[in-house]
Simulated scan of single mutants.
Amino acid sequence: MKASEMFELMHGGPDAQGAVPHDFSTNGNACGPCPGALQALQATDASRYPDPHYLRLRERLARLHGVEVCRIVIAASASEFIGRITAAVSQGGGGRVRVPRHGYGDYLRAAKAWHFEIATADSAADLVWCCDPGSPLGQPQEDLMSRIGPLSGGATCVLDLAYEPLRLEGTLALSGAQRDTVWQLWTPNKALGLTGVRAAYAIAPLAAQDMAGRLVRLAPSWPLGAHGVALLEAWAGEAAQRWLAESLATLRAWKAEQRALCESLGWRCFPSVANFFCAEPDAVYTAGRAAALRQAGIQLRDTASFGLPGQVRLGVLPPASQQALQRAWIASRP
Rank of each mutant, 00 (worst) to 15 (best):
S4A: 06
E5Y: 11
M6V: 14
M6R: 12
F7M: 07
M10A: 08
S25H: 04
G28T: 00
A30F: 14
G36F: 13
A43K: 03
R56E: 15
A62Q: 05
G66F: 09
R71I: 02
A76R: 13
Q91V: 03
P100S: 13
R101T: 15
Y107E: 09
K112M: 10
A113Q: 11
A121I: 01
A121E: 13
D122P: 12
W129P: 02
W129L: 07
C130A: 14
D132L: 05
G138D: 10
G149H: 10
S152H: 14
G153L: 03
A155D: 08
L161E: 15
L161S: 01
A162E: 13
A162N: 04
P165Y: 06
L168G: 04
L172F: 15
L174H: 05
G176W: 03
G176R: 11
A191I: 07
G196Q: 13
V197L: 05
A208K: 03
M211N: 01
R214S: 12
L215K: 04
A226G: 06
V229S: 09
E238S: 02
A239V: 12
Q241Y: 00
Q241T: 00
W243K: 02
L244D: 08
A245T: 00
L248D: 04
K255C: 01
E257H: 02
R259G: 00
S264V: 08
R268D: 15
F270E: 15
A274I: 12
F276E: 02
F277Q: 11
P281E: 11
P281Q: 06
A283I: 08
A287P: 07
G288C: 00
A292W: 00
D302T: 08
Q311A: 05
Q323F: 00
A324Y: 01
Q326W: 07
I330M: 14
